[in-house]
Design a protein around this nucleic acid. Structure first.
Lengths: 513, 513
RNA sequence: GGACACCAGAUAUC
DNA sequence: GATATCTGGTGTCC
């Protein structure tokens, strides 16, 4: 029985958390059956014109119900006032429940209050100066989280790194993050300061000269971190009386993505379309079937055809023992749903990276919305559209009579596709030639490489730190500045198709649909 | 069936023509099987001390037999009195032979008499005021070619451009040539005149100040052009009775390279050593095996070991669509055989430039004289010494199973190397590190860049002229003034070796020979 | 044998 | 940072 309590910084963060749980599920670590949580939505004023973030938080309690997965064994439940996630792994209930202790993690991968030191340590791995506190009562932990103080656990040692030129300029509080922003960026500039204000001023020096849209993208990770360490978010989400879409839009676009402008028309907002926020009660609920159908019947405006997602995997040193892999999922230029993350697990191969990328794409694709997944991996496409049929009948043996590799990844993806079918959402997989000028493929490729680099950094840190046995949990990171904002182009020349009972696979040479 | 009749201005020009045909062969346009022609050697007095060239021509008919290529399908034949080249492409015999018409091209890329308008147009492309005439009889064309008149086809429009400061100062009659001399030359000066005398006087204004060896080099192209448009060559080749080498030497060195002093000891004269001029009959013939062997047995004096040639390619914007490439072949400082020419064809890549430079080097290297080719291209060396062996067995597929690139260049080079082997001449290819202070490499590099600039000028002119569809045929151009006159230095530190059945490839790290 | 992908390396050209 | 090109390899399937 593994348990964890988390505090979510806003609706979007909660949405992210649900995704995170799905990701766990996709890894097979802890299959998700049901996701449900109560969120403490919190916001405060944005840092405006060099002004540090306001210390005052606005609060709102809400309950969110996430997706439902079949054949799994994991759930999250929440109670009023704090969001509590309870996970039950298949091997669960082995450890004894100790006296209740709380770990408030203010500067870490995912700030929040955790029940176990294991969980808290995981969140602070790779952070040189994590801000966290061990508390005996929940109230104490909450107080610590709320406090405007930025002093770290060991006062007097805090540092602020201003990244003036880098992938994502801004203020960072740990050196690894700075490295990540600066490495691989031509002419990267960073400087250490003792106060947030100084660092921010340093960052702003260059901001005037930078085009506003260039530095606009804020990564999910950056957001989460900045919520506590740098300061972000603004506009108190005043309680709304009416359940009109504009209110939700105001929260999603304006409030929780500082620096990012309104979404372009037709772009996805990253929220699960099966959910709705009841603004009268503050609760998030499943939309009724009628509501979903209504949306499907009125695709103008909100929906524009199937969701198109590009996936890719990258594995440095593929086949070698020290290989490190990453995966990328690309929805569009600067799309906040874009993810670049390392491949977890021991087996770091290109095929696993490619498959996992598809799995992550299906995590994010709304369960009831048709999706087209673009991959350059013949292997992945064939696995998910052709070969699996034979494998499901011959006990997963390949043509050589040996066990099929990566079954652990393929099966959950198939389950997800079938689940989507039940929601009347088709899932098409289309093959595209790699490195052929395809915008989405190149975007996904860059994201995947970014993810692989993250993995490399992780492993190196682990090695230096004397090999902690805990696998650092990855986080979604946007690709900064993927250039032009135009959406998917036509792909006709480089793709084809092949349909297999509800799942579509597309390869060049097949007839057009 | 493509046909063309050409008139060659002198022995050297014929040698150049043979090279040109070989070049066509190396491009795959029209593989050369056999080269044979009758040349009308022609000469007249040099312009001496501002005196314009004498109008009187001295004539001599002669027959030349060129190289023999294996597995090809092209030949040139000549008859007494006119040099006629007949080419048969593999796809040949498609066009119908029309009533015989002759195009006498006096001012063009390669002056001569052509059978088809297509050929003639090709020779006059990029010339604003080409001097050419359509004739119904060969006699008429010959008469036109012989006429001392310099009036262009449209009389009254003739121009003389004096290039006072430029790559090669002199008098030019077309603006493109002037541009080529001036572009890329710091402080280039040119001026238009109505008469040759005025232009020449303008050119001479600067000559006094210039060191005599600086402007000495005369390019092949310059020679060909000047033969007709500016005037060159002197000393009537009186008929000789005895077949002694000195007579040939007198013609080659003194008579047909005005402005160039005696060749330095050991330097190559650019003529095919397999040929000899029978001065009794005026015919040029293959040397007998005994004669060739005699030369090999008595290398003192005339030969000093293998011919050393440096090659290089340059491609501005390599990989981009608008790239333009050039190639350089360097024999020594101020060596008249040095060539800098643009890369022809659509595919302007660095690799093609490098390979083509080697092909051109082998054009010039006497077929029976061992040669060492220095290249900084790992790719070229490996192609020609290692990889081709596998490719010839696996139908030219690279390790990825894809067709090998640039096969069209590699195969003819290999054919040439084997042809040389039959003449008992070894061909070594030695790799040298680029930009490492190697005199020859730097010389070739400069020549290659010059060639690339020529290509750029060509394309720009083509674009301005409304995109003529004909690819302008390139010409060899010397690099003026490559500085110090000392020959090849030692290369020990930067090279190695690896021998493969008769063809030698040298790379650093291999054992020394 | 085929296919797609993922790398590693090398040289040159920009 | 990129392309031009090749060599070598693994990951996976048919």
């Amino acid at each position: 029985m593994r348990t964890a309590v988390k505090r979510f910084a806003g609706h979007r963060a909660l949405s992210c958390e649900i995704r995170h749980l799905r990701r766990l599920s996709s890894r097979g670590d802890c299959p998700v059956r049901r996701v449900q949580a109560t969120a403490h939505i919190r916001a405060r004023e944005l840092p405006y014109k060099d002004r540090p973030p306001a210390p005052r938080w606005y609060h709102q309690e809400t309950t969110v119900v996430g997706a439902f997965f079949s054949g799994q064994d994991f759930e999250i439940e929440g109670a009023m006032g704090d969001a509590r996630s309870t996970s039950t792994t298949s091997s669960g209930a082995k450890r004894k429940r100790a006296a209740p202790v709380y770990y408030a993690v203010k500067l870490g991968h995912e700030p929040g209050i955790y029940y176990s030191w294991e969980d808290a340590k995981r969140q602070t791995a790779a952070f040189k100066n994590p801000i966290l506190k061990k508390c005996n009562t929940l109230a104490e932990a909450e107080e610590f989280m709320k406090s405007g103080s930025y002093s770290p656990a060991r006062p007097g040692k805090s540092k602020y790194y201003g990244v003036q030129v880098g992938h994502r300029p801004g203020v960072y509080t740990d050196w690894p993050s700075v490295l990540q922003q600066v490495t691989g960026y031509k002419g990267g500039k960073q400087k250490k300061f003792d106060t947030w204000e100084e660092a921010q001023a340093y960052v702003n020096e260059a901001k005037g000269a930078t085009p506003s849209d260039s530095g606009a993208a804020i990564s999910l990770k950056g957001h989460l971190e900045s919520t506590l360490s740098v300061g972000a978010t603004i506009k108190a989400p005043k309680k709304q009386k009416k359940n009109d879409g504009s209110a939700l839009a105001a929260i999603t676009n304006g409030d929780f993505e500082p620096g990012t402008g309104p979404l372009p028309p037709g772009a996805e907002d990253g929220f699960d379309r099966t959910l709705k926020l009841d603004l009268a009660t503050g609760a998030v609920q499943y939309k009724t079937y009628a509501e979903l159908s209504a949306l499907k019947m009125q695709p103008t405006g909100e929906f524009e055809g199937p969701l198109k997602i590009c996936t890719d995997g990258a594995t440095k040193g593929n086949g070698k023992i020290g290989a490190y892999a990453g995966l990328g999922v690309w929805f569009g230029p600067n799309d906040p749903r874009n993810i670049a993350e390392p491949l977890t697990g021991e087996k770091q191969t290109n095929q696993r990276a490619e498959l996992t990328a598809i799995a992550r794409a299906l995590d994010i694709a709304p369960i009831n919305r048709s999706a087209i997944i673009y991959t350059d991996s013949h292997y992945s496409l064939k696995c998910l559209t052709v070969w699996f049929q034979k494998w499901e009948q011959n006990d997963w043996k390949n043509s050589a009579g040996k066990p099929v590799e990566n079954k652990d990844l393929i099966e959950p993806i198939l389950a997800r596709i079938r689940e989507r079918e039940l929601s009347k959402a088709t899932t098409k997989i289309i093959w595209i030639k790699a490195h052929n000028g395809h915008e989405g493929n190149e975007g996904a490729d860059a994201l995947a490489n970014q993810g692989a680099t993250q993995r490399q950094a992780q492993q190196q840190m682990k090695a230096r730190a004397g090999h902690s046995e805990i696998d650092v949990e990855p986080h979604a990171v946007d690709k900064p500045g993927m250039g032009k904002a135009h959406a998917f182009a036509e792909y006709g020349a480089q793709e084809g198709q092949a349909q297999i009972n509800g799942i579509f696979g597309y390869l060049p040479g097949d007839a057009d649909v």
